[in-house]
Nucleic acid binder design. Sequence first.
DNA 1: CGGCATCCACCGGGATACTG
DNA 2: CAGTATCCCGGTGGATGCCG
Lengths: 127, 127
Amino acid sequence: MTTMSDGEEIVFEQPCPIRDVLDRIGDQWSLLILEALAPGTLRFNALMREIGDVSKQMLSRTLKQLEQDGFITRTLYPEVPPRVEYTLTPLGRSFLEPMRQLVAWADAHHGAIVAARARYQARQEQT
Amino acid sequence: MTTMSDGEEIVFEQPCPIRDVLDRIGDQWSLLILEALAPGTLRFNALMREIGDVSKQMLSRTLKQLEQDGFITRTLYPEVPPRVEYTLTPLGRSFLEPMRQLVAWADAHHGAIVAARARYQARQEQT
DNA sequence: CGGCATCCACCGGGATACTG
DNA sequence: CAGTATCCCGGTGGATGCCG
């Protein structure tokens, strides 16, 4: 989308901050992880149990993403067996605010959305 | 994720409202469309021009999704040439609030995220 | 003008197996 | 315990073309 017509270099890598942020937290697991870490630090397997239906694969991947973007910190304790702890950074914690707004809205209006879908569905079928 | 082991029926279609909402507005275009419609009603091609780099395909698809979920209304004026107008519903307008929170956060902290990425990147390369 | 149908490339994410 | 590597499938979204 930002590539030039003849394959020239990209001018604006992130033309829209919101797009950039959504790409990160709009995936399957990021929000769940941030919520799980909101109460406090957790280890890898604790996170798995907390979230429930996430694979090691995706948990690992998503955690790395969140770490890269500065939402969480990863601390490795070189013991045997190894122990790794994940904690929200101030940036990550600051994100909880708007996120909770969104969650609250979703909770409040989810019923309305489901109802709207049902209405739409009904209108199609009464053809 | 919600399917039973042997292909039995699905028990919880929407185990998490926030998941359901994110799946809808987390895509490439929904947010942009809602923002574009915030000032007022727009026609199809006006939306295309407003957003800029969206294909007819995706605009059409996303608009239908948003209509199904009750975020917008579609009004067809059977003239020649046909005219179609899209408007936010009260539900859609109510969503603008938490959405603006998120956008504001993204704007405010986008720099920090980019910086965090750069730091991470640098740490990898100094191996 | 405002779509829908078709084809296709990409990649997110699941399953599984292996490593330190 | 905490990952990484590999394979693979399905959904998302771009491009194009046709229709009312």
